[in-house]
């Protein structure tokens, strides 16, 4: 049943359509942040790999995010076809997602995950580029602030240009097919 429902959303065109549509959204731009190793990192991937970007936070104890594992599943599916996809999360909680702290939770989800943090001003540039709003919903007395934040996944090319955006409610296989439609056949 879920597959039938998904078909209603996704339609029959899938990845093939990705190449024919002009991007209808003004998204993306330059940013400069710091990764979990303390190295500066911009919107461009140092190795020129395609990137799947999400805005979220790694150190939340209450929320079992569905999107970060979904991203990992997408990367694993594509890796099975010899297509490397860089997973990147830009934090919306820099107070807890510090350089020292952002990496380990992400590494538990996928070893190649890149976590980016920075100053409020540095991060705001990235939020503005992608139209991301963040809001502290409440403070869990045991685990701290809980945030609502941008939910879209963004596919960036190796230079950091936005290729498309994807709602994180799609199955991993469907996202992988769409990504593959942009970055080309595996192998």
């Amino acid at each position: 049943m879920i597959r039938l429902v998904a078909a209603c959303l996704v339609g029959l065109t899938g990845a093939a359509q990705a190449e024919s549509d002009a991007l209808p959204f003004a998204l993306g731009g330059d940013f400069s942040l710091t990764d979990q190793s303390g190295m500066a990192r911009t919107q461009a991937d140092p190795e020129g790999l395609p990137q799947l970007l999400f805005f979220g936070y790694a150190n939340c104890q209450e929320i079992c995010s569905a999107t970060l594992p979904l991203m990992a599943d997408v990367a694993d599916i594509l890796a099975g076809g010899d297509l490397d996809l860089r997973l990147v999360m830009i934090t919306v909680d820099p107070a807890r997602d510090t350089v020292a702290d952002i990496g380990p939770p992400l590494a538990r989800i996928h070893p190649g995950f890149i976590g980016l943090t920075g100053t409020e001003a540095e991060l705001q540039i990235a939020y503005d580029a992608f139209g991301v709003d963040r809001e502290e919903l409440f403070v869990d007395p045991e685990h701290g602030p809980v945030f609502a934040h941008g939910s879209m996944l963004y596919l960036l090319d190796g230079a950091g240009a936005v290729q498309t955006l994807l709602p994180p409610i799609l199955p991993a296989g469907q996202i992988a097919r769409i990504v593959q439609g942009y970055v080309g056949p595996a192998g």
Binding site: C64, D133, L137, A148
Partner: peptide, 23 residues
Amino acid sequence: NRVFAAFLALSSPFLLAAPAFAE
């Protein structure tokens, strides 16, 4: 708050961006 957290744990917190649109 706890019920809300339970929902979030099952659902993940999402806010869609509001990008500019073309055609």
